[in-house]
Structure formats: C-alpha cells, structure tokens
Design a protein around this nucleic acid. Structure first.
Length: 425
RNA sequence: GGAGGAGUAGCAUAAUUGGUAAUGCAGCGGUCUUGAAAACCGCCGCCUUCGGGCUUGCAGGUUCGAGUCCUGUCUCCUCCGCCA
C-alpha cells in the first residue's frame, strides 16, 4: 500500500509511477474520497469532543443527585448525528481502503521503463552453458527414462500440472531443500522457520495477494484459509501488527515450504514437465530491515540466491525487471534465470524483490528508533525454486547414456551418490 | 467436538449500583554526583486540521456515558472426548 500522504500531497508522483507501469489506473476518485473522508472524520471528532464534555457534566450532576434530563435529551441529538456521520465514514473508509489496496507500488528510479518482459534488462551472467556432443534432452525425457518423475501418476492423483517424484528424484528435491537451507542459515545468517502452509485472509492482504489477485491462489472451501502461493506470505506476516525494537533489525528468515498456485491465465503455457505446476517446493529468504538499508539488502539477498546456483555449477543470468513486468507489490525485482539446455533458454528460477514499505504498511509492521514508529522495509527472494533447480540439474548434468551426474555440492545430501542412473540408484 | 475459566501499556497487578483506565517494575530524559547508585521531577499506546479524537483480545449492541451489561468471534489455560 502506498502512503496516502504521498497520494494526497504529490499525486503527480503516483500518476508517473502508474504510467511507468503501463497501468490505466486513475487516482482522481481516490483523492476525492480521501478529501471527503477527512472532512467527515473531522466533523465526527468535533461532535465527539462536545459529547465527552457534556457526558462528564452529566456524571457530575448525577453524583450530586441533581436532575440531568435536559442535558441527556440534548445529547440524544448529537448522538443521532454522530451515528449518521459514522455510517458515512464507514462507507467512505471502505472505498478509500479498497482504492489504496488495489494501487500498485511505486517502481524505484533504477527500474527500467518498458511494457513487458522483452524490456527487462540483463545485469550479469555467470557460467558458460555446456556444449553437448550429443543431443541434449529436456527434463521430462530424462526423468521419465530414469523413472524418477511420474507425470501420469500426478495427473491421476490430482490432475494436470501435478507430478509424482520417486526414488532418486524425490531424494534430489529433499537434498536440494536441505542444501539450500543449510547454506542460508549457516553461511548467510538466516534463521530457519517452518510456517503454516495455509494462512488467513489478513496475511494474504498484508503481502499483496489480496484483494486483487484472489484467483491466483487456492482457497480452502468454507474457511478463511488460503494455501500459500509462496512462503513470503506467512514469513513476512510473522511480524504483522507489531512494533519491533530498532536493534532487532535486520531480521533474516529462511523457510522451506511447498507453494500452491492456480496458474489461472497460463493455460497452454509450460504444460509439459515440472516448470509450471500447481504445487512446487521452494526455499524462500525474507528480510525485514530499516528503510535506508533495503537497497543494499536486496543486492545481498540476490547474491545469496546466486550462491546456490554457483555451488551447483548452474549457468545463469540476472535481469532487472522493467516497470511493466514488475509485480504488484514490488518496487524493484531481480530475476535469476538458469540455463536450461532442454529449452535452449534462460528460465526464471528465483525472483528477488524489494517491496520498500509497501507490504509493511499493509501488514502494519513497524519499528521504533526515535519517538515515532516507522514502517520497516521488506525484501524477499527465492533461494531457490526447488523443482526448477532439479530440472536444471537434470538438463545441465545429463550424460549421453541418459544418466545424470549429481553436482558435488549436494552429494553429501544424497548419501554420497555421484550419478543417477536408475530410479533406485 | 463438549464443559468451565481467563484476556487491561514491554511485564505484573487495580478500577464501588456503569461515571470517563489507576499503581508498581522495566525503559527514556532531567536534577543531584568526579562517575555510578539511591532519591526526586518529567516522559513512558496510536492518530490529529493541535481544538481534540481514539485505545481494556477483536467486531457489534444497549446507554447521555461501557474495562464493567448483552450478542458474536479469536486466542490461551483446565477437564472430557478424539487423534498424530
């Protein structure tokens, strides 16, 4: 949520931000609603002040056993007037709240302009895509031949966009989860948390999934529970409605969770394989910090995610998302794209964002260093998407005979296994 | 799932038949002191158009006025049932 004061005092800044994002959203109605709300609230408060004074006088009279019926009758009028005004405040409040909750974040100055992903800017590359002396297969062919992923069975158990990992395939994902968590907790200073995989609506609103993007997530019927689309939701909301002490910052959390996404609107996209599924595993990094530190913290968090790719020897590039491709809540996002020989392309494997105070304002996460509480800044990023990491390993480390070499970094997590040649290897 | 009890500032405790949230500790600032402690004074939840308004888990209701009465709801505790 952007600051209502920014909208009120510098509407041109908000207009420019919306234009940069290629958004057609208008702010005139919100401004008008805000002015109306402030006038109403002022009037209510004036009446309430009058009421408080009169009420106290009635109390004094009653104590002295004097008659106060005239004053009480007079108060009745004010009471009714307040009731009418308050109903109006409620309506206007709701309208303004909705307007603010559906307004996207202001992109940072360093975010390049652009309408879609074609305008994203490459920042750097690491590693060199391997040159194969045989025809590189994609992960579906590799995994099915090895018998370590069963897509048919995923469809039988749940439906399209689900799969069943088996044997070394299941072990590989578990190994990756442990490897990533160990690196982030032991080397990068993150505290591991294991949050609920379902959250309530307040959390979804806090991080920006609601009210605008309800159809992207799964809701549990007849409850207020949502399956988390990312660990970002429960982990950021750990400190919802809290005022943290300044010396508690920065907070670093790392969490493994499965993620559930409806993938509405992506019909026909990535239908093959494990690239885009309704459920996938992810290790997520989340930071809460002081405002002046958040840009540096974003760079460091991105570097933390890159470390995983480097340790696994997977070539990748880093791109800065352009304003038009930027997520709703984000002020700036770096995508890490891993090289996939099976697609002959770089594909997103991590998304690292600084939300500035946008989520903190929604979730009301503050800290106190002087007299006034201030909103923290929130940063998060995948470290990494586990399913896509497994895909990248299968494709980058495949051999001509169909086997897959296991990167050295995770062999300790695979009971020393050096190569997957069969499901039970 | 059933029965009972409890939620008041960071913590701990008050508030008469409903009368407008008190006190202690902790913390911050000051006086005093070589420094510190003690003592004393002030601050010690949020918003504000600086008039004031709001705040007793949350949301409503009754009332001129609600920590107190009523309804709903959440969390925690105890017991029973069930369960991993």
């Amino acid at each position: 949520m952007i600051d209502i004061k920014l909208l009120r005092d510098e509407p041109e800044v908000v207009r420019a931000a919306l234009a940069k994002r290629n958004s057609a959203l208008r702010i005139e109605d919100a401004l008008e609603t805000d002015a109306k709300r402030r006038a109403l609230v002022y009037e209510v408060e004036q009446l309430r002040a009058e009421q408080n004074v009169a009420s106290e006088a009635i109390g004094v009279k009653k104590k002295a056993r004097e008659d106060a019926s005239d004053a009480i009758a007079a108060m009745k009028t004010i009471k009714d007037r307040i009731a009418v005004l308050e109903e109006q405040v409620r309506e206007v409040d709701e309208a303004l709240r909705y307007a603010l909750l559906t307004m996207p974040n202001i992109p940072h100055d360093s975010v390049p302009p652009g309408a879609s992903e074609v305008d994203n800017r490459e920042v750097r590359r690491w590693g060199t895509p391997r040159v194969f002396d045989f025809e590189a297969k994609d992960h579906v062919d590799i995994a099915e031949k090895l018998g370590i992923v069963d897509f048919e069975c995923g469809a039988k158990l749940a439906g399209a966009r689900f799969s069943l990992s088996k044997g070394a395939g299941a072990r590989l994902e578990r190994a990756l989860i442990n490897f990533m968590l160990d690196v982030h907790t032991q080397e990068h200073g993150y505290t591991e948390v294991l949050p609920p995989f379902m959250v309530n609506s307040a959390c979804m609103e806090g991080t920006g999934q609601l009210p605008k993007f309800a159809s992207d997530s799964f809701r549990v019927e007849n409850t207020d529970y949502w399956l988390i689309p990312t660990a970002e939701v429960p982990v950021t909301n750990i400190h919802r409605q809290e005022i943290l002490s300044a010396d508690a910052l920065p907070l670093y959390y790392a969490a493994y969770t499965p993620c559930f996404r409806s993938e509405a609107g992506s019909y026909g996209k990535d239908t093959r394989g494990m690239i885009r599924q309704h459920q996938f595993n992810k290790v997520e990094m989340v930071k809460l910090c002081a405002p002046e530190d958040s840009w540096e913290e974003l760079e460091r968090l991105t570097a933390n995610a890159e470390t995983i790719l480097q340790r696994l020897g997977l070539p990748y590039r880093v791109v800065t998302l352009c304003a038009g491709d930027l997520g709703f809540s984000s002020a700036k996002t770096y995508d890490l794209e891993v090289w996939l020989p099976g697609q002959n392309a770089y594909r997103e494997i991590s998304s690292c964002s600084n939300f500035a105070d946008f989520q903190a304002r929604r979730a009301n996460i503050r800290f106190k260093r002087d007299k006034k509480p201030e909103f923290v800044h929130t940063i998060n990023g995948s470290g990494l998407a586990v399913g896509r990491t497994a895909v990248a390993i299968l494709e980058n480390y495949q051999e001509a005979d169909g086997s897959v070499v296991i990167p050295e970094a995770i062999r300790p997590y695979m009971n020393g296994l050096e190569r997957i040649a069969t499901a039970t290897a």
